Simulated scan of single mutants.
Amino acid sequence: METRLELDVLIYSDEVRVVTPEELTEWELETASQVSIPTVRLFVALYPYNPAAMSPNYETAAEELPFVPGQIIKVHGDKDSDGFYHGESGGLSGYVPSNMVAEIPVDDEYLKHLLMQQGFLPVDHTGINLSDVASITDDVIVQRMVALFDYDPWENSPNVDSEVELGFHSGDIIYVLGEMDEDGFYYGDLHGRKGLVPSNYLQPLPWD
């Protein structure tokens, strides 16, 4: 029967020797102190952003993150020299223009987790209200609706920015967040995909 023995060693220019437990512990503590964990910051989108049509950087537009007003974006680190953060939202990641978003002033890690799970802040017609963030999770109205017809934004949408809308099929159950906007659209969630949905294609579906 073969027995294998694993040892940690230190390699010098003139010798190789086995590391003592004390040296290994000291090295691990020193390494851990040098590793900086980037602070997670939460931002909310103030305006709709379609990189393909709006990005100032044509060559890197594909690396940028599209979003809609009210969408919550998780950001690591600070903005770069071009004024972009690197963020993630809705399962996608990419660069985020700093002038299109605002930071949510919250430090509590559990509340950050709740907000990221929610993925959205209510938006009124005058912009984003960032006051009283701690109560946001209680204030958002979530409605369950069923699609009456198929909807393909590219074919059926009256809007030029149809890429921020959500396509769906008749019978799909969509969870609507917040109130209807002035154009007759809700902000909805379908199996983790989020976007604007036309209210006249939906019908309320009672929770019970």
Score class of each variant (00 low, 15 high):
121 L>V: 12
95 Y>W: 10
182 E>G: 01
63 E>F: 10
173 I>W: 01
134 A>I: 11
81 S>K: 15
126 T>M: 05
30 E>S: 15
136 I>R: 10
189 D>G: 00
5 L>Q: 08
56 P>L: 07
172 D>H: 04
132 D>T: 09
108 D>E: 11
2 E>K: 08
185 F>R: 08
153 P>I: 11
41 R>A: 03
23 E>A: 08
192 G>L: 02
57 N>H: 13
1 M>Q: 13
59 E>F: 12
49 Y>W: 05
206 P>G: 00
180 M>T: 10
49 Y>I: 06
104 I>Y: 08
164 V>T: 09
58 Y>A: 13
190 L>G: 12
83 G>C: 01
80 D>I: 09
23 E>R: 12
191 H>W: 05
91 G>V: 03
102 A>N: 07
62 A>L: 12
34 Q>M: 11
87 G>C: 05
176 V>E: 08
90 G>C: 02
114 L>F: 12
174 I>A: 04
97 P>E: 02
178 G>E: 15
139 D>C: 10
23 E>C: 11
108 D>V: 10
191 H>Y: 05
93 S>V: 01
189 D>Y: 00
100 M>K: 14
121 L>G: 05
78 D>V: 07
152 D>E: 15
196 L>D: 06
178 G>C: 02
52 A>C: 08
135 S>Q: 13
7 L>W: 13
186 Y>W: 10
21 P>T: 06
45 A>I: 00
7 L>P: 02
115 L>H: 03
156 N>W: 06
132 D>G: 15
64 E>C: 07
176 V>R: 04
4 R>E: 08
165 E>I: 06
88 E>W: 09
107 D>N: 07
96 V>K: 13
73 I>T: 03
25 T>Q: 05
89 S>N: 01
74 K>H: 13
141 I>K: 06
82 D>T: 15
195 G>C: 02
23 E>Q: 00
20 T>N: 10
149 F>C: 13
163 E>T: 15
65 L>W: 03
14 D>H: 07
2 E>N: 05
200 N>A: 11
185 F>E: 10
72 I>S: 04
198 P>C: 08
48 P>V: 10
67 F>V: 06
181 D>N: 09
156 N>M: 09
149 F>I: 08
33 S>R: 03
111 L>D: 04
19 V>Q: 06
170 S>D: 14
201 Y>Q: 13
154 W>K: 15
65 L>F: 12
16 V>E: 14
171 G>R: 05
94 G>T: 03
62 A>P: 01
101 V>H: 00
134 A>F: 06
79 K>I: 05
45 A>G: 15
52 A>D: 13
174 I>C: 03
204 P>S: 01
